[in-house]
């Protein structure tokens, strides 16, 4: 498939390794991958605070950059940015091409699970990981079944993907509660946000895992911040790093 990468600002500037892992992984899986310069922010920073007008130029710039290269799908390694990009391209712009672009943006988990299912043989990896099922991916993108819902057959797309890695042990924290990041919430509501992040890290640690693995870099940044502050023996990583390593 011809894929255009959407690399959200946080990943681009603070976690470029996530972008490289995503790029390499998709290439190894046989996709043609391109990346266009000039990508900005999905607008989430502003729209999360209700500032729709202030987000418009960023969303338009992102749309323009993504349209530079024709593709079958746009893939991004960040769930909340995918949710925001789709929503904001739809509601903040009136350009037809932006609306159809919104319809083909996928988060990496969802792309590998639903759009171009991962069927490559994977190398074994002896490691115990704990899944960080962040809220936007879980409840807005349906990457898993949230614990509140009464569903006969719950799904977990991240687990489904990673369970294809031989010898990998997958655990999950006792609750799928929010990690407390929430964009500017992490600064505005420092006490509650910090407490939530600490509780989440403790829950991951209690699983006995060596690493927290997730699909949302911003939540991982928050959890990583606690891990670093407290010197907790846990790796914090985006799942693209795992998959790229074993593909």
């Amino acid at each position: 498939m011809k894929i255009a990468l959407f690399i959200p600002c946080l990943v681009n500037h603070f976690y470029p390794e996530i972008a490289r892992d995503t790029l390499e992984l998709l290439e190894k899986l046989g996709h043609g991958v391109s990346y266009t310069q000039g990508q900005t922010c999905c607008g989430q920073l502003m729209t999360n605070s209700g500032c729709l007008d202030q987000a418009r130029s960023s969303v338009e710039a992102l749309g323009k950059a993504l349209l530079k290269e024709p593709c079958d799908a746009v893939v991004a390694p960040a769930a909340s940015c995918v949710v925001a990009a789709r929503e904001n391209l739809e509601r903040l712009t009136s350009f037809e091409d932006f609306h159809s672009l919104a319809g083909k943006i996928f988060e990496l988990t969802e792309f590998l699970h639903d759009i171009a299912p991962l069927d490559h043989p994977l190398k074994p990896l002896r490691k115990t990981v704990s899944l960080q099922m962040s809220c936007h991916g879980l409840r807005q993108l349906g990457l898993g079944t949230a614990s509140e819902l009464v569903v006969a057959r719950p799904v977990n797309k991240l687990q489904a993907l990673l369970s294809r890695i031989p010898e990998l042990t997958i655990t999950q924290p006792s609750r799928d509660e929010c990690c407390g990041f929430g964009g500017t919430f992490s600064v505005d509501e420092r006490d509650i946000s910090g407490k939530m992040a600490n509780d989440k890290v403790a829950d991951h640690l209690a699983t006995g895992a060596e690493a927290i693995v997730g699909y949302d870099p911003s939540c991982l940044m928050s959890l990583g911040g606690v891990v670093s502050r407290k010197g907790i023996p846990l790796e914090v990583m985006h799942f693209s790093a795992l998959l790229n390593q074993v593909t």
């Binding site: 690399i7 990943v11 681009n12 500037h13 603070f14 976690y15 470029p16 390794e17 972008a19 490289r20 990346y35 310069q37 990508q39 992490s186 600064v187 505005d188 420092r190 006490d191 946000s193 910090g194 407490k195 992040a197 600490n198 940044m221 928050s222 990583g224 911040g225 606690v226 670093s228 502050r229």
Partner: peptide, 19 residues
Amino acid sequence: GWSKSRDFPKPPAESFAHW
């Protein structure tokens, strides 16, 4: 704010776009 209970990420030398 953020740093009350969390460290900032260790910044990389260059962005992905640059790389």
